[in-house]
Computed example of a mutant assay.
Amino acid sequence: MARADDPLSRVFQALADPVRRGILERLSTGPATVGQVAEPFDISAPAISQHLKILESAGLVERSTHAQWRICSLRPEPLDEATAWVERNRALWQNRFDRLDEVLAGLQRDQDR
């Protein structure tokens, strides 16, 4: 399967993993050091670093250096773009479900006759 590399695909890829969603939840309360981000997870430091790299690639996290500390901050703009995509498509999906309901209701009426 081909892997999409557009910004929206990177956001959804990043959101697909529960650890990365947990990292974003942690950062939604404010910036944190890499160590603070890693605290609640029972995974290795290299694994946390890999998750942060994916989040950075998606534009969801920004890392900066302050003295010897690596500080991670949430960047919500890509989440806004993903939300806008979902909202644009929600009406289409709902319309298709409504049409399916109508077809199924018609089939049920035909079967009841």
Results as ranks from 00 to 15, higher is better:
Phe12Arg: 11
Trp93Phe: 14
Pro76Met: 02
Ala2Pro: 13
Asp110Val: 08
Val86Lys: 00
Gly59Ser: 11
Val19His: 12
Phe12Ile: 15
Phe97Arg: 07
Phe12Tyr: 15
Phe41His: 09
Arg10Trp: 04
Arg113Asn: 08
Cys72Phe: 04
Glu102Val: 12
Arg99Ser: 06
Val37Gln: 03
Pro7Trp: 01
Glu56Val: 10
Arg88Phe: 00
Gln108Gly: 04
Leu100Lys: 01
Asp42Thr: 14
Arg90His: 06
Lys53Arg: 15
Gln68Glu: 12
Glu39Ile: 07
Ile71Thr: 04
Ala82Gly: 13
Val103Ala: 05
Ala16Leu: 03
Ser9His: 13
Asn95Ile: 01
Pro46Leu: 11
Leu24Ala: 00
Arg99Asp: 15
Trp93Lys: 04
Glu81Asp: 15
Pro76Ser: 09
Leu100Arg: 04
Val34Phe: 02
Arg26Phe: 07
Pro31Tyr: 06
Gln13Met: 09
Phe41Ala: 15
Arg109Thr: 15
Gln13Gly: 03
Ala16Asp: 13
Arg10Glu: 13
Leu107Lys: 02
Gln50Trp: 06
Arg3Cys: 07
Asp98Ser: 13
Arg75Asn: 14
Arg20Thr: 01
Asn89Pro: 00
Phe12Pro: 13
Ile23Asn: 01
Glu25Ser: 01
Ala47Arg: 13
Asp112Trp: 01
Asp101Met: 05
Ala82Glu: 10
Gln111Asp: 15
Ser57Met: 10
Ala45Arg: 12
Ala32Met: 11
Val34Asn: 00
Glu102Leu: 05
Asp6Glu: 15
Pro31Ser: 09
Ser28Ala: 14
Ser73Val: 07
Met1Ala: 04
Gly106Gln: 01
Arg113Lys: 00
Ser44Thr: 15
Leu74Met: 07
Asp98Val: 03
Ala58Pro: 03
Ile54Glu: 11
Ala4Glu: 12
Leu8Lys: 06
Pro76Asp: 14
Asp101Leu: 02
Glu62Asp: 05
Ala58Trp: 01
Ala14Lys: 04
Ile43Thr: 11
Glu87Phe: 02
Met1Ser: 08
Gly59Thr: 10
Ile54Val: 09
Ser73Trp: 04
Arg20Leu: 06
Pro40Cys: 12
Glu77Gln: 11
Val19Pro: 03
Gly22Arg: 02
Leu107Trp: 01
Leu60Cys: 05
Ser57Val: 15
Glu39Phe: 10
Ala32Glu: 08
Leu107Gly: 09
Ala67Tyr: 10
Asp80Met: 11
Leu24Arg: 10
Asp112Cys: 04
Gln36Thr: 09
Phe97Thr: 03
Ser57Gly: 15
Asp5Gly: 14
Ala84Arg: 10
Leu52Asn: 03
Leu24Trp: 10
Asp98Cys: 02
Asn95Phe: 03
Gln111Ile: 11
Arg20Gln: 08
Gln36Arg: 06
Leu52Arg: 07
Gly22Ser: 05
Gly35Ser: 12
Arg63Cys: 02
Ala16Cys: 05
Trp69Phe: 02
Thr29Ser: 14
Arg109Gly: 08
Ala38Val: 08
Lys53Asn: 14
Pro40Lys: 12
Leu104Thr: 07
Ser64Glu: 10
Val86Leu: 12
Leu15Met: 03
His66Met: 00
Gly30Ser: 12
Leu27Trp: 04
Leu79Asn: 09
